[in-house]
């Protein structure tokens, strides 16, 4: 997509920096107001993305939810400034595997993530153990070109996160340098998303993020 004019002179558009949120909207997310805090946190983050005004990169945001019996593309991947936020609703099971396959499909599709895009960021938010077969789906994501190279971040929310649930998130991140976020008290969730926001905006400004940069934000 190039900007063109009546007399053919065109300008270059910033390179997209895709951010996909992978949000658990299972029934349990309705407890303790978790889904409300998540809605607010993600909406705030996308607004911050939209305000980020860099010549070299433009943050795009999309949301995949998993709940009920399947995964849904809640918001397609578009420039953050074009997102009209719609709240997510919690109900049903935790079909993470279906969500991972949906994400893999999006990342490999060049009409969704153009070739010129920066390395995508995928953020997984969950409050418990998946209810479907997720291992094979995760390995499909990690072995796909864009999925494997993506910066994968994850945060566990609420009191019900047990060792098994954290293990799932760790396997998703698959990078010892990056720690799983923990928001046992749901009100710690916005802070985690502030961190994600800072990490992503740093990437779009400098075009890269080093492990060192990540540490900088992990306070």
């Amino acid at each position: 997509m190039d900007g063109s004019t009546s007399d053919q002179a065109m300008f270059q558009r910033p390179r997209p920096l895709p951010v996909l949120i992978l949000a658990d909207v299972s029934g349990s997310m309705a407890n303790d107001g978790k889904i409300d805090v998540l809605n607010r946190s993600v909406a705030t983050m996308i607004r911050a993305f939209a305000d980020e005004d860099s010549l070299r990169g433009e943050i795009w945001a999309g949301v995949v939810t998993f709940g009920g019996s399947d995964a849904t593309l809640h918001h397609p991947l578009v420039p953050a400034s074009d997102v009209r936020w719609d709240d997510m609703r919690a109900s049903g099971r935790t079909p993470l595997g279906a969500a991972l396959d949906l994400v893999t499909g999006l990342l490999v599709d060049e009409s969704v993530v153009p070739r010129r895009a920066f390395r995508p960021t995928v953020v997984l938010v969950s409050d418990g153990v998946p209810t479907d077969e997720w291992r094979a789906a995760l390995s499909r994501l990690l072995t796909s070109d864009k999925g494997g190279r993506a910066l994968r971040l994850a945060v566990g929310v609420g009191q019900d996160m047990d060792a098994e649930a954290f293990d799932v998130l760790e396997q998703f991140i698959a990078n010892p340098q990056v720690k799983v976020g923990r928001a046992e008290d749901v009100h710690e969730l916005p802070r985690y998303f502030d961190w994600v926001t800072a990490t992503v905006t740093t990437q779009v400004r400098s075009g890269r993020v080093t492990n060192d940069d990540l540490l900088d934000f992990m306070n």
Partner: peptide
Amino acid sequence: FAPTGRTALVP
């Protein structure tokens, strides 16, 4: 430095 959205360049 650059217009945003679908603005025409010369104007």
